[in-house]
Design a binder for these strands. Structure first.
Length: 776
DNA sequence: GATCCATTTGTTTTT
DNA sequence: CAAATGGATC
């Protein structure tokens, strides 16, 4: 959240909350932190009593208002740090908020125990009252992966064909229900019918039962269980009412029903709830966010003060005007008009390309020329709708030798080796963690297959004990063959030894011993595949990252709630990421690629959510444009390979929704000048192969000096792909009479690989892929 | 019980 | 086109 990056934070006064200075200031706050706020921001900061909705457009200083408000509450002595509940969605946002409050107030922020994500605060509450939810306080938190594996077991036990009814799909449904705070008994008939002939709710209930047996929760429960506890125990709720004098919510437009209910329950106490958000930036509807929450705020919280932040300090005039004009096409918005504060700046540009390769090349060229003019690569970003688009840019940047970084993709804690290692740790800390145990009993391979595991499961179920305990019995009983029996005994002995040392040595040492003695490290050392070295490195990194924690249990809790790792800014590099990932960030120059019907707006959005889907896509476009401070450069490609098939598409309807007077169209949509049709091999023509290009050589040089820009994967080696593909011969030699769906009849004028230049009788000369024509 | 091949299925992503 | 999954085979 760098919304107000350009209005420097006021110097931090060191005021001890509740101290004499603070109380004295409460009478007449002329605090320095209020300086530099515009009137609306100041209003948002100083309206402390009653419900407040701050509608903060992109780049209007939202985070600043929020953090200053907290500083103000503290400085005026209205509440202690521990009496403020401040919730965010991501750990990153929570971290930033903490830092900024600390900067404003001077170090008091560590004393804010209730500043965190919905889930971390939910966990905290649930741990205190776990027994009321049928759990023990040390419950484990399952991630999506565990959740699906658990559901698979449920489906198996119920004899449901997993082929026809995949566990993943059920997980989605249950997630959706939990997002809407719907318990197994409240699922609507329509929803129930969606899975296994109406068995959905039934399976949902069984899943919940299994969770309790495992002493585990999924992410949804972290909010739902507290809601249940609050509803069933008014005394507990009253306790929290007394505790939380002020409630603050960031990104309110992203809340789902469960989060809304949770907040509403807590806000019934003081009524001092302040929600900050922007309905125009609601882009997470597909994972349960209800824009309606923010649209309905005044009804939900009667007497609410609504404050609009509309002065945009980020983007230049043309950019802002374009974004505003575009988003105005949405219905059902609260309506804000962003007012530019700076220069009119450069017009937004729209550029059409023949295919995605050319798009990437054009953008890479533009970036190089910006770089030559002295622009830092760190100030440049490429935003795409779908992650498959990133590849084309990566390929191009490698050949050209441009430094880039990719944000997104599989995260650190989602990597197999990390999850395996964590499963070992989980087993040591909580021997009843069946899912973890099952994950690693046979990793590395120990000769324990389905048969042995099935036996353990049978014992566990019969005696209602955890898997590991059942495994002990299995070893003692004579039911296993000698080999698996010895192997299983060996593992169990290891675990017994590790558990015993839990309190004797530091958790970091223990972690190393576990990975070593289990043979897990050895397994990757023996692995000859290319990424084995990286995996070992990741394991080291994991152990290193445990250092900052009290103990193993503390570390594991952190991991289950914090799925992100600090990806250092590193060296100067262009950022490539999805539009979703870009929310909250800003760059001088933003390239918005792939504005084609079907990709953006995405076809699936339109198919599945219709009008609402289209509006969400439009908001995504709005988010994209408003990331730019100085330059927004939109592009589209007529041809793109999707699932290996070339597809032709028309420019996005969003392009037509931009205001002409603020946009420069560099390439007229729909007609493509022949200079662009010469395909992706243009730039390489003078060289015998791509290896000979200066860019390739530069890329080689760059690779030699290792750079830690491997957020997701290293720059991809393309191994002459560009030349290889050009040799395909077309089935349509020059002069062939052909027919095209859209352009009608014509004859082939030129052939390049699978690309044809065709003189159409009516439509003139066009560049077409041979797969789109047929012999006339 | 492990390995290999065929089939499937491909937005966006946090906790 | 490619990754990931699951079934069939050794």
């Amino acid at each position: 959240m760098t919304d107000s990056a350009r209005t420097p934070p006021a110097p931090a006064p060191a005021i001890r909350p509740g101290g004499i200075a603070a109380r004295a200031m409460g009478a007449r706050p002329a605090a320095a932190y209020l300086e530099g706020l515009n009137p609306e921001q100041r209003h948002a900061v100083e309206t402390l009593d009653g419900p407040v909705l701050v509608l903060a457009g992109a780049g209007t200083g939202k985070t600043r208002a929020l953090t200053t408000r907290i500083a103000h509450i503290l400085a005026t002595g209205k509440a202690h740090p521990s009496q403020i509940l401040a919730v965010t969605f991501t750990n990153k946002a929570a971290r930033e908020m903490k830092e900024r409050i600390a900067a404003l107030v001077g170090g008091v922020a560590e004393g804010m125990p209730w500043l965190g994500t919905f889930h971390s605060i939910g966990t905290k509450i649930l741990r205190r009252h776990a027994e009321l939810a049928g759990l023990k306080s040390g419950f484990t938190i399952l991630d999506t992966d565990d959740q699906i594996r658990l559901l698979k077991q449920v489906l198996q036990a119920e004899n449901i064909d997993e082929k026809r009814w995949p566990a993943r799909q059920l997980a989605h449904l249950i997630d959706g229900w939990k997002n809407r705070a719907i318990g197994p008994d409240k699922v609507s008939a329509a929803d129930a019918g969606l899975f296994a002939n109406g068995r959905g709710p039934d399976l949902y209930a069984l899943y919940q039962e299994r969770l309790k047996i495992l002493n585990a929760t999924d992410f949804g429960d972290l909010l739902l269980e507290p809601i249940r506890i609050f509803r069933e125990n008014p005394d507990i709720l009253a306790d929290y009412h007394r505790r939380f004098r002020y409630i603050l919510v960031d990104e309110y437009q992203d809340t789902n029903v469960a989060q809304y209910l949770w907040l509403r329950l807590l806000a019934q106490g003081s009524h001092n709830i302040c929600c900050v958000g922007d309905d125009d930036q609601s882009i997470y509807g597909w994972r349960g966010a209800e824009v309606d929450n923010i649209l309905r705020f005044e009804k939900d919280f009667p007497g609410a003060t609504v404050i609009r932040l509309e002065r945009n300090y980020r983007s230049d005039g043309h950019i802002l005007a374009s974004a505003s004009h575009l988003i105005a096409h949405n219905e059902g918005r609260l309506g804000k008009t962003l007012q530019p504060q700076g220069d009119i700046g450069e017009k937004v540009t729209v550029n059409g390309a023949w295919d995605s390769g050319e798009e990437a090349r054009t953008i890479a060229d533009e970036i190089e020329s910006l770089q030559n003019k002295g622009h830092a690569l760190n100030d440049i970003a490429i935003l795409v709708r779908a992650s498959f688009q990133m590849r084309e840019f990566e390929d191009r940047f490698v050949t050209v030798g441009l430094n880039y970084r990719v944000i997104g993709g599989p995260r650190f804690y989602e990597r197999a080796e990390i999850r395996d290692a964590l499963a070992y740790f989980r087993c040591v800390v909580s021997p009843a963690d069946d899912l973890a145990f099952e994950r690693i009993v046979n990793t590395p391979k120990r000769g324990l297959g389905d048969a042995s595991i099935a036996l353990c499961h049978a014992i566990a179920r019969a005696q209602k004990i955890p898997l590991m305990a059942a495994a002990h019995i299995a070893v003692d009983s004579g039911e296993l063959k000698p080999k698996p029996r010895a192997a299983l005994k060996d593992v169990l002995d290891h675990f017994a030894r590790w558990s015993a040392r839990l309190d004797q040595i530091t958790h970091t040492e223990l972690a190393e011993i576990i990975l070593d003695e289990s043979g897990y490290t050895e397994m990757w050392k023996r692995d000859r595949s290319a990424d084995a070295a990286g995996r070992l490195e990741n394991l080291k990194e994991l152990v290193r990252s445990m250092d900052g924690f009290e103990n193993m249990a503390g570390f594991l809790e952190h991991v289950s709630l914090v799925m992100d790792t600090e990806g250092g800014a590193g060296s100067d590099a262009v950022t490539i990421m999805t539009l979703h990932a870009a929310k909250g960030l800003e760059f001088d120059t933003v390239f918005l690629s792939g504005w084609e019907e079907g990709l953006f707006p995405h076809q699936r959005s339109l198919d599945e959510s219709g009008r609402a889907g289209l509006e969400e896509e439009r908001r995504l476009a709005y988010v994209g444009i408003t990331r730019a401070r100085k330059r927004a450069k939109i592009s589209f490609a007529s041809n793109r390979r999707i699932h290996g098939m070339w597809q032709t598409s028309i420019p996005s309807r969003f392009l037509d929704e931009l205001p002409e007077e603020h946009v420069d169209v560099l390439e007229a949509p729909a007609t493509f000048s022949s200079s662009y049709g010469r395909s992706r091999f243009d730039g390489l023509a003078p060289f015998s192969s791509s290896y000979a290009t200066p860019g390739w050589q530069r890329a080689q040089a760059n690779r030699a000096a290792p750079q830690a820009e491997t957020f997701r994967r290293g720059p991809r080696v393309i191994e002459g792909e560009l030349v290889a593909k050009s040799t395909g011969t077309s089935a349509y030699p020059v002069g062939t009479r052909i027919f095209h769906q859209k352009f009608g009849y014509g004859h082939v004028a030129m052939v390049e690989g699978n690309k044809l230049t065709v003189d159409f009788d009516k439509a003139g000369q066009k560049h077409i892929l041979d797969s789109f024509v047929e012999p006339a």
